[in-house]
Amino acid sequence: MKNFKTLLLIAVFTLGVAGVSNAQKVGHIDFEKLVSEMPQTKTLKSNMEKLGKTYQDDIEGMGKKIEATQKKYMAESKTQTNQTNEARAKELQIEAGKLEQLRKTAYQDMQNRQNAGLQPIIEKAQKAIEDVAATKGILYVLDASVGKGLLVKKGEDIYNAVKTKLGF
């Protein structure tokens, strides 16, 4: 009986120590905040704003040109033949179609450029998080920015360490 108690005590102690040594370290980071504060993201945002302004100016310029042509044609419509007025109406429809196509193309181009620009930034951030987690022995890193749904933050916040790793 005494041996059984000793064996049971040893088993409980061994399992307890094994459980503590297998405890897994968890960290968290606000990934959205990290990416938004990276210098590369700020540069991308600035470039996208410039491109957007260029497209906006082109679209507005084309719209004003169409509007001026339309006003001119309306003023001249009574002195023109029906055939000329119909040709002019078709011309304005074609120009309006070109304007709409420019809007769609501009939107798609901006989306593609933003996605292409964000991809390496996100990869760089993820690599830095992986490096910091490995250095600190953290096995799991939770994203604290996803819906701000992290209710208990008992793990280590690695935000500042990752910022330092990225150099900003």
Rank of each mutant, 00 (worst) to 15 (best):
K25Q: 14
G167P: 01
K153H: 02
R103T: 03
N22M: 11
E37I: 10
K154Q: 00
A18D: 07
I122M: 09
K45F: 12
N85A: 00
S36R: 15
G147N: 11
V17A: 12
A144K: 12
Q83V: 04
L118T: 07
K42S: 12
I66E: 06
A161W: 05
E76Y: 03
P39W: 04
K124T: 13
Y140L: 14
S77N: 06
V132A: 03
A75M: 13
S21L: 13
F13C: 11
S145P: 01
I158H: 03
I29V: 13
S36P: 02
Q56T: 01
I121Q: 05
L8S: 13
L142Q: 10
A116H: 02
F13Q: 06
Q126N: 13
V162I: 12
V162N: 01
L51C: 01
A128G: 08
A11T: 15
E67I: 12
D30M: 11
F31A: 10
S145K: 10
D143W: 05
Y73I: 10
L8P: 00
I59A: 02
I158S: 02
K64G: 08
V141Q: 03
A68V: 15
G97S: 11
V26N: 10
Q83L: 10
K124A: 07
Y107M: 14
A96Q: 15
V146M: 08
K153I: 04
E49C: 04
V35S: 05
S77L: 04
E156N: 07
E60W: 06
A125W: 05
I158G: 03
S46D: 11
L150F: 06
A161V: 04
G155F: 00
K25E: 14
A134H: 09
Y73K: 14
K45T: 14
E86P: 00
Q126W: 06
Y159I: 09
D157N: 11
K90W: 15
I66Q: 08
K136Y: 12
E130S: 12
V146P: 02
L9S: 15
V141F: 04
Q111K: 09
T84V: 10
V35Y: 05
E95V: 12
A144S: 14
R103A: 07
G97M: 10
K72W: 09
K165A: 07
G27A: 13
L102P: 01
V152I: 07
E49A: 03
D131R: 09
K153D: 09
G27S: 07
N3K: 11
T164D: 07
R103K: 06
I66V: 14
M110Y: 02
L166P: 00
L150D: 03
V141A: 07
L99Q: 08
K163V: 14
V146G: 04
F4Q: 15
G52I: 01
T79V: 06
G52K: 07
K154S: 08
I10T: 13
T6P: 00
K153P: 00
L102M: 06
G19T: 12
E130R: 11
I138C: 06
